[in-house]
Computed example of a mutant assay.
Amino acid sequence: MLAIIGAVLFGLALILDLADANLGDTVTASTIVTAGLLCVALHLAGVGARARTGGGWSLRSRR
């Protein structure tokens, strides 16, 4: 999920950079790229991963 958010932020930063758009002094293309890198780093660190429990169906439970 965080990787998808990071990809969306990278796409938004690319569009802003190509259009030479300015959203103010605090929100720039480099700020959005930094937020995207943060999301990807958190994804790679395992933050936000689903907890995998053994409650699912399997073939071994039918025996």
Rank of each mutant, 00 (worst) to 15 (best):
M1R: 11
M1N: 13
L2I: 03
L2P: 02
A3G: 10
A3P: 04
G6E: 02
A7I: 13
A7T: 13
F10S: 10
F10L: 12
G11W: 11
G11P: 01
G11E: 08
G11R: 14
G11Q: 12
L12D: 12
A13Q: 09
A13G: 11
A13V: 08
L14Q: 14
L14A: 13
I15K: 14
I15S: 10
L16F: 11
L16S: 07
D17T: 14
L18D: 05
L18M: 10
L18K: 11
L18S: 09
A19G: 12
N22Q: 14
N22I: 09
L23S: 09
D25Y: 13
D25G: 14
D25R: 14
V27S: 00
V27A: 06
T28K: 06
T28D: 07
T28W: 04
A29T: 13
S30E: 15
T31F: 08
I32M: 06
I32E: 01
V33Y: 05
T34M: 07
A35F: 04
A35E: 00
G36N: 01
L37N: 05
L37M: 07
L38R: 00
L38T: 06
L38F: 07
L38W: 03
L38E: 01
C39S: 07
V40I: 15
A41C: 07
A41W: 01
A41P: 00
A41F: 06
L42N: 05
H43R: 05
A45F: 05
A45C: 08
A45W: 04
A45P: 04
V47C: 01
G48A: 00
G48Y: 03
R50F: 08
R50I: 02
A51W: 06
A51M: 08
T53D: 03
G54M: 09
G54E: 12
G55F: 06
G56K: 04
G56L: 05
G56S: 09
G56N: 04
W57T: 03
W57M: 05
W57C: 03
W57A: 04
R60I: 11
R60H: 08
S61K: 15
R62T: 09
R63A: 11
